[in-house]
């Protein structure tokens, strides 16, 4: 592209300034602040930096956090609940995506998509309280249903059972997200070159064979993206485990890492230093995950970029031939 004599480069900087300022103020500075707090003894309501001291043993907070069983419980709960939600979620989403992208797809799939995705946009806090009520004791709808069906005789206190409490959290996550995953997978499958499927059809490949040998390898990147993205989201799980059961259930059954951080800093104990240290451990975990996404996306965008540039050049040539369009 030929440039005019006037340089517009400075506008690139000017227009980026609001973003940069907001980022420094509201993300970078708080990040550095949090890292710093992790090394101090700052605690107590209304405590400020002025009264805080750097710990003699620099990693005292980290050692304490990693040493306490509660944080380890929180981390293992987080991972466990995430796995219990992700595995069924990805399988169901793949199955539905395969059904919805066949040459003769399920009828009414537009409506199904809308309904399956719906739980995703509903406030997680509301969903948590709603499920808490549905599994309520002694008289919740689930108890009513189980009694009517004759499965139980006496009302059952679901949320006092570790497995039920965790299971319901995992189920809510699954229920809120499989529709989203399905839609992303569908758009991934629709992006596959249809000639591949046609060739396989001529060779007489079965539906399953086509799915396994063409669809899956071609949406590998999307699958990895979904996996990592879901893991990052799962690590931050807060609203549902915090609101579904009181005080994280029996034996901290639904205590997740985010709930742990919140409890340390903002409910009762005001241990800003320990909460900060726990935040940093989370941050490191998430950074590892996002590094994977970052490298994936970078390759992706380079390819897409070249395509877009080619397209634009073609359009320009066309426009030059046919005269400029308004």
């Amino acid at each position: 592209m030929n440039k005019k004599k006037v340089s517009y480069a400075k506008y690139g900087y000017i227009f980026s300034v609001p973003f940069v300022i907001a980022f420094i103020l509201f993300t970078l500075y708080p990040l550095v602040f949090t890292i710093f707090l992790g090394f101090t003894d700052m605690k107590g309501l209304g405590s400020t930096l002025a009264t805080a001291h750097v710990q003699e043993d620099l990693f005292a907070n980290f050692k304490q956090i990693l040493g306490t069983g509660t944080f380890r419980t929180a981390l293992s709960n987080t991972i466990g609940i995430w796995i219990a939600n992700f595995i069924p979620q990805i399988f169901l989403a793949l199955l539905l995506a395969a059904w919805f992208t066949k040459t003769k797809p399920v009828k009414g799939q537009g409506i199904f998509k809308v309904i399956f995705y719906m739980p995703n946009i509903i406030t997680a806090a509301t969903v948590a309280i709603l499920f808490g009520a549905l599994f309520g004791y002694p008289m919740g709808p689930m108890n009513d249903l189980f009694k009517t069906l004759g499965i139980i005789k006496e009302p059952y206190f679901f949320m006092q059972n570790k497995t039920w409490a965790r299971g319901v959290v995992a189920f809510i996550q699954f229920w809120q997200w499989y529709g989203y995953t399905m839609i992303i997978l569908i758009s991934g499958i629709l992006g596959i070159n249809p000639e591949l499927f046609e060739a396989a059809e001529i060779d007489g490949a079965s539906d399953f064979k086509k799915f396994w040998s063409i669809t899956i390898p071609n949406i590998r990147t999307v699958l990895i993206y979904m996996l990592v993205n879901s893991l990052i989201g799962g690590l931050q799980m807060f609203d549902i485990p915090n609101l579904l059961v009181t005080k994280s259930g029996p034996n901290n059954a639904t205590l997740t890492a985010s709930v742990f951080i919140y409890n340390q800093a903002f409910s009762g104990s005001y241990m800003y230093n320990r909460a900060s240290a726990a935040s940093m451990i989370m941050f490191i975990l998430i950074s590892i995950c996002s590094a994977i996404i970052f490298f994936l996306m970078r390759d992706k965008y380079e390819v897409a970029e070249k395509k877009a540039i080619k397209k634009a050049e073609k359009a320009m040539k066309k426009a030059a031939k046919g005269g400029a369009k308004a």
């Binding site: 949090t34 707090l37 951080i261 909460a275 935040s279 970052f294």
Partner: peptide, 13 residues
């Protein structure tokens, strides 16, 4: 991918 949650303590302070 930096979530608001991990910087929340510093942000709150």
């Amino acid at each position: 991918m930096i979530p608001a949650q991990v910087v929340s303590i510093g942000f709150y302070q």
